[in-house]
């Protein structure tokens, strides 16, 4: 899994849900969690948290300026690619740090990526976990 360290920048609460915006590296990642500052004492601005998401939950877009309904879009370049039969593994160097991605080989190949290609990593807020 990808584990990145960050600091809580903002918490938006609605009933039992919170949208937590975390400053990671030079950018931000947001996560939606079933907790509020009342039920989880780590949910406060300026607290250090770890942002956790699985390699298989990252979508890779070529270039930037994608118009998709994904809040987390981090810019970067391709560090390395390893192709497998069904799955391929990419290492992305992004604004939030190094991210490992595992995607379908066919989908990755269709992007014609090589080392250094500019990309955007897309992660849904509901796929990101926070850990203390």
């Amino acid at each position: 899994m990808n584990t990145l360290s960050g600091e809580i920048d903002h918490v938006t609460v609605s009933d039992h849900l919170s949208l937590v915006k975390v400053k990671v590296g030079s950018s931000y990642l947001s996560a939606v969690v079933i907790d509020t500052p009342n039920t989880a004492d780590y949910l406060h601005v300026n607290n250090q948290v770890k942002v956790v998401f699985k390699e298989t939950e990252v979508i890779v877009g070529k270039g930037d300026g994608h118009r998709v309904s994904v809040l987390n879009q981090v810019k970067g370049t391709v560090g390395s690619i390893e192709y497998g039969e069904l799955l391929s593994k990419l290492l992305l160097e992004t604004e939030v740090g190094l991210i490992t991605v595992i995607n379908n080989t066919e989908a990755v190949k269709s992007l014609n990526l090589e080392k250094g290609s500019p990309i955007t990593g897309l992660i849904k807020t509901s796929d990101i976990m926070l850990s203390v």
């Binding site: 079933i34 907790d35 989880a40 956790v52 976990m129 926070l130 850990s131 203390v132």
Partner: peptide
């Protein structure tokens, strides 16, 4: 749960 994750 403290040392664990926000996962429910």
């Amino acid at each position: 749960t403290r040392k664990n994750i926000s996962a429910k």
